[in-house]
């Protein structure tokens, strides 16, 4: 599945999305991303980034993911 990357996360990885095998949950997604990008694993830790599923922030790691979900990693918001 395609994972969208925004702002600092996109800049540090140099890509705006990544295709990975669909993880079963948000928590597993974080682990997969840390494994795929070991030099930038801090970006995918629970304490730093937010995960949006279908454009809503998902705070539950156990949330199950479906192939059709739109999933994105967001750094902490700093706008306004």
């Amino acid at each position: 599945m395609k994972i969208l990357l925004f702002a600092r996360i996109r800049d540090q990885l140099g890509i705006d999305s990544v295709d990975i095998d669909k993880p079963s949950t948000v928590a597993e997604l974080r682990l997969l991303m840390q494994r795929q990008f070991p030099d930038h694993s801090a970006l995918f830790e629970d304490g730093f980034s937010l995960v949006a599923v279908n454009q809503e922030i998902e705070t539950t790691g156990a949330r199950r993911l479906r192939e059709s979900d739109e999933v994105a990693f967001l750094p902490p918001m700093t706008g306004g």
Partner: peptide, 14 residues
Amino acid sequence: LMDYLKSQAPFWKK
């Protein structure tokens, strides 16, 4: 609304 926009709205500033 401004407190929300500054802290929770999905914007990133460079």
